[in-house]
Design a binder for these strands. Structure first.
Lengths: 176, 176
DNA sequence: GGATGAACCTGGCACAGTGGAATGTCAAGC
DNA sequence: GCTTGACATTCCACTGTGCCAGGTTCATCC
């Protein structure tokens, strides 16, 4: 009967374990905490909150400043979350437009493709630097959450793999 | 005016450069060629074909065996594809449910989490093996397409990074 | 040759997810 | 008081997903 929570809704419930939050705050929290491997938009947050409120998994509190509408998790919400996290997680999906471009690379002048690649490489370097800084901060502050470190380490490993791939590309591709 | 093709439609046009194909063939081709980094479903293929036919980017030919409906790319279609591939590709999105589970790992008994992790590790080993086999085949048959090798190499690098992450996890997580 | 079943091929439908536009609310500074 | 901009919510058009119904061809077995 607890109609199978989706991962986005479940994550919101996860964050609400820390106390009531508004849709805005939830969206911001999600962006920083799980945004690197689970994208969601504000629209989606509000929709999930509304439908979870209907289902009794969260409760809307009094509107505060600026129409801010806090939501609190209910007992039913905790139960639904517990049920969700106990289920086998599905496998990941990646959508990588740059690989499409590479895949159809024969239809593009090599310099153009090279320009795209170098722009993306720079962006990934940036992201790696960001992750490394996060890790330094976490290690310095000592109170490192192991679970957060695990996901952060995934980000590091991923970005390093991507950069390594960029570096091998010239040998793999025509016109390299 | 050529109303900004989406990546899925553009990919279909890309495949149609090789000659007329039916929706079925396009879906199958897409699955094997770009399926690892750009998912699409048959329904979507038929819908995009219909709308591209409306827009004059493809032309439906005579129905053949088994009601098979071939589509051919038109001059306008080639132009639209050229325009699409010349645009800066967006950045990738990853949706990784397992990382959500890890992220909320405190709400799960360690053995349960460990079980999920080992199941997923096995699946990734399988995928890596598959990619390695593909590469062997491509190298053996000699006629390796550089662009295809580049995307294949990405898959290899990604899976190796993921496996490495799995192996480091015990040191990173509580109860490891 | 008729029945059976499997693979092939197209399409419809309902619903979930996405991202950006539009709108509204409030605090702070000039 | 007026503007500016951050905060907060909602709407909408489009894209993506999964499931299913229906028709076609082919091989196989009796």
């Amino acid at each position: 009967m607890t109609s199978a929570l989706n991962a986005t809704a479940a994550s919101l419930l996860g964050f609400l374990h820390h106390g009531p939050m508004s849709g805005w705050d939830l969206a911001a929290t999600a962006e920083t905490v799980i945004g690197d491997f689970w994208s969601l938009t504000r629209s989606q947050v509000y929709r999930e909150l509304a439908s979870m409120a209907d289902a009794g998994l969260v409760e809307a509190g009094e509107r505060g400043r600026r129409d801010r509408q806090p939501y609190a998790i209910t007992a039913a919400g905790r139960a639904a979350f517990a049920e969700w996290i106990d289920r086998e997680p599905g496998s990941e999906t990646i959508r990588f437009p740059l690989l499409l471009t590479v895949s159809f690379g024969r239809h593009l002048p090599p310099e153009r493709l090279a320009a795209f690649l170098s722009a993306h490489r720079a962006a990934h370097e940036q992201r790696l630097a960001g992750y490394e800084q996060q890790r330094s901060l976490a290690e310095a502050s000592g109170g490192a959450d192991g679970y957060a470190m695990a996901t952060l380490d995934f980000g590091l490993a991923y970005e390093r793999a991507v950069l390594g791939w960029f570096d091998r590309l010239p040998e793999l591709m025509p016109g390299g």
